[in-house]
Design a protein around this nucleic acid. Sequence first.
DNA 1: CGCGCTATAACGAACGTTCGCTCGATTCAT
DNA 2: ATGAATCGAGCGAACGTTCGTTATAGCGCG
Lengths: 210, 210
Amino acid sequence: MTLTSPMPDSTAASSDSRYDRQLARILEHATAIFYEKGYEGASIRDLSRASGMSLAGLYYYFESKEKLLHVIQRQLFLEVMDLVRERLKDESDPEQRVRLFILTHLEYFLANPKSMKVLSHEDDVLKDELGADIAKLKRQYYRCGADLVDGLKTAKGLHFNSRVAVLSLFGMMNWIYTWYNPHVDGDAKVLAQEIGNVFLGGIYATPAPF
Amino acid sequence: MTLTSPMPDSTAASSDSRYDRQLARILEHATAIFYEKGYEGASIRDLSRASGMSLAGLYYYFESKEKLLHVIQRQLFLEVMDLVRERLKDESDPEQRVRLFILTHLEYFLANPKSMKVLSHEDDVLKDELGADIAKLKRQYYRCGADLVDGLKTAKGLHFNSRVAVLSLFGMMNWIYTWYNPHVDGDAKVLAQEIGNVFLGGIYATPAPF
DNA sequence: CGCGCTATAACGAACGTTCGCTCGATTCAT
DNA sequence: ATGAATCGAGCGAACGTTCGTTATAGCGCG
């Protein structure tokens, strides 16, 4: 009965009910533990220790380890997709739209580096319906990026393999969690600039077919 | 009745003892299982089932699950590094050297897609000495790519952030295991061409620092 | 009181690992 | 040439631990 649907008695100002605050706290700790040890390597007891709650206490908030990961991943996807949508609302220049997409993605995930890994690294552990649901969200997000790149492509009359280009872009961005060091590499703005330069310069320089 | 060679052994090539062949077989099965279920998600019993050998039998060939992964990863790094070194021997043009690096990396890992994931995805599960050893190899491999890119950079008098550029290149290449489909995307040669175009076009188009 | 929430303690199953043993091939002394 | 001893390769069964999960009983607050 937990987690599959919002609490029935929650009113509009539900974001600060005790239940919601506790749930958010648990998701945060769980994300940190999954980040450190990976989903399979993390035990419910690790989560219990980290969040200072008993095993049974945790199960009051989610009904299985799988559903817990699912909630975390789903929330992250929805949040970043919402953010992207809102940021892109006021931009119409095709190149700037791609740059803005990169910037938004990096800003969100450099602000939540542990979330970045839990999304990127634990991407295929969920099976069946739960896995299919996450895969669907992922495909939506990919589509979003691909549409932006294709928009730029037709606007400028470029010729390149869209699929490989977009997936390469996602590769650059999603690989960051393995090396990013805020003291060495700049903030999201700097990084988005540099990665945007490489990617856009790369597709602009693409050879014309003949 | 002189004692020339003990066994006639039709398929001589006795450089591989039975032990070595069995070990290789086990490593291959283990790679496949780690690929499917991840290191933490794979149990020794899974490996036992896959390789058709008992639990205790497996432990005759390695002394712990961690050491098994270590052997696999170490062997892969050494093999691909050797391959890169040999291929680069005869090429002196800086751009072609970078392209050749990309091609070699892709050829090796598209020929061994499961290995690619076991290296990329299970990269930080090993701790202490074993982990440090793998991290050292990884750093060597990174250095290799970085030197090539830096060679091109100075040869052409380009200006860009080498660290971000090289790590982005590795991001593009190492992310491939999440999406590559041999029936849709080309073989290593065509993929190396496309990724090389994006990357090289990207760093060539880099703005001068002012 | 009743209800939302937490803690204790336990469940069976699965985990990585080890022990003692077997069995065929090889080696060696006679 | 042959029996005894050794060795490499592998097996079945079990070790103690940890896993995800749950039944149940108790607390504090409206």
